[in-house]
């Protein structure tokens, strides 16, 4: 019980800290024309996605209706309205990677992780995403897990790579 309490107070402190960061970012951009998208980038940087309660704060601070913010956030692929798993896997589906067999790598990941593309595994460990060109065409087919780039992939390499993150 006592342990739980500590955890929750840590959580609250962390939540406060994040919200402070958001408010600081808003302050920084507030007077700038076209502030919304830079603010959304900051929020996503801080939380990993765009949580609705935080967007409400953005709405109040920037004096923009939430509907407009939702319109912008949902328009751009880069922004996510749902939380991601611990490790986000981006499989490059740019043309160079596609021609070199990225689909087979993506399919294999989907089979191995038992999760559809754009989905998150039940244990919240992995989110599998197909993404636009990562720009490492020389290493095609390519995927990134977090910051780490894995290149020159073949489907058979998938299980071993995933195991490194389990």
């Amino acid at each position: 019980m006592e342990h739980q309490q500590t955890c929750s107070s840590v959580d609250i402190a962390e939540a406060d800290e994040k919200l402070e960061k958001v408010k600081h970012a808003i302050e920084q951009f507030k007077l700038m024309k076209g502030a919304l998208i830079p603010v959304l980038h900051e929020v996503q940087d801080i939380y990993g996605f765009l949580p609705e309660p935080v967007l409400q704060v953005v709405s109040e601070e920037l004096n923009l209706p939430l509907s407009e913010i939702y319109g912008v956030a949902s328009f751009y692929h880069f922004f996510s309205l749902t939380p991601k798993g611990e490790h986000v896997i981006h499989v490059c589906m740019g043309t160079a990677c596609y021609i070199k067999g990225a689909q087979a790598v993506l399919d294999r990941l989907s089979t191995e992780l038992k999760v559809p593309v754009q989905g998150t595994t039940e244990d919240n460990k992995f989110t599998l995403e197909a993404t636009r060109c990562l720009g490492a065409c020389g290493l095609a087919p390519v995927m990134t897990i977090g910051e780490k780039v894995h290149g020159r992939l073949v489907p058979n390499a998938v299980p071993k790579i995933i195991n490194e993150y389990k």
Partner: peptide, 8 residues
């Protein structure tokens, strides 16, 4: 600098 957000 303005960052794009992934829209072709």
């Amino acid at each position: 600098v303005r960052l794009g957000a992934g829209a072709f």
